[in-house]
């Protein structure tokens, strides 16, 4: 590059600097201008066009309550303590169901709530889950008006219904 910064300014130097400024600016403008034609648009027009997320993308958590064995490992692994689990002994004589992976469900899950507003999406809870019922789904549009609405009770019927539209198995 022929551009240099000159400490001692003289009459000649002044015009030389001016020339370099214009020359390099024109060069930069040329680079910018070359993007006007022939370069395809890189941005996505979001609400109309949606990006396909990678398979591992970590979005809203979802717990498949049918498969949960109330082991509370996820709650222990959570660094921000946003998972609330409560369970009690199975009532006498109730048949012991099994999860899809074959482990018996010995405890009755009475509460499984995740405060999504607290969640830091680190994914540590999903890695410790023995039955793989707690997963990150691909839902990312879940803004709410109140912070309380971010608490999801995964035993509630409306939240359970998410299961049908979960992308990731």
């Amino acid at each position: 590059m022929s551009t240099h910064l000159h400490q001692h300014s003289s009459f000649k130097q002044y015009f030389l600097n001016l020339f370099h400024a214009i020359y390099t600016t024109v060069k930069g403008m040329y680079i910018t201008f070359s993007y006007v034609w022939g370069v395809k648009v890189v941005s996505i027009e979001y609400p109309e066009v949606r990006e396909v997320l990678p398979a591992r993308a970590r979005m809203r958590l979802f717990n498949d309550a049918e498969n949960c064995i109330s082991c509370t490992q996820c709650a222990m692994a959570c660094p921000v303590d946003c998972i609330y689990i409560a369970s009690e002994k199975m009532p006498e004589g109730a048949e012991i169901k099994k999860t899809t992976s074959g482990s018996p469900i010995r405890l009755l899950l009475t509460q499984f709530t995740i405060d999504t507003a607290l969640c830091c999406y680190c994914g540590l809870c999903t890695t410790v889950c023995p039955t793989e019922c707690l997963t990150h789904s691909h839902d990312y549009e879940f803004a709410q008006y109140t912070i309380d609405a971010m608490k999801y009770d995964y035993l509630a019927p409306d939240v359970r219904a998410w299961r049908d539209r979960i992308v990731k198995a």
Partner: peptide, 16 residues
Amino acid sequence: HELVSMNQIFIQRTAN
């Protein structure tokens, strides 16, 4: 580099 580093205006703003 052409766009920024060697631009004379950028150099005047940052050098020294």
